[in-house]
């Protein structure tokens, strides 16, 4: 989803890459897309969820895993 919707080159993406850091540089518009993507893929609502859960692929995975019904 990150590679397709946010056009992050696959080779630049590790499980613990800082998504909002200098290299990948996601911003507020990207977070809207992440929220929409996770909602449609896993049915997990992330609107208003604390920033630290968006830090990396690992933190996003943990949040989704813990909140799936």
């Amino acid at each position: 989803m990150l590679v397709e919707n946010l056009r992050i080159p696959q080779e630049a993406l590790d499980y613990d890459s800082e998504l909002f850091g200098d290299d990948i540089g996601l911003d507020s518009i990207d977070s809207i897309e992440i929220i929409a993507g996770i909602d449609s893929l896993f049915g997990v609502q992330m609107t208003g969820v604390a920033k630290e859960h968006f830090r990396s692929v690992n933190t996003l995975t943990d949040y989704v895993y813990n909140n799936m019904k």
Partner: peptide
């Protein structure tokens, strides 16, 4: 990616 790196354009910028 080389087309951008040779001009000093970071991935965080050109990805969008």
């Amino acid at each position: 990616s080389g087309s951008f790196s040779e001009l000093g354009i970071k991935m965080a910028f050109y990805r969008k």
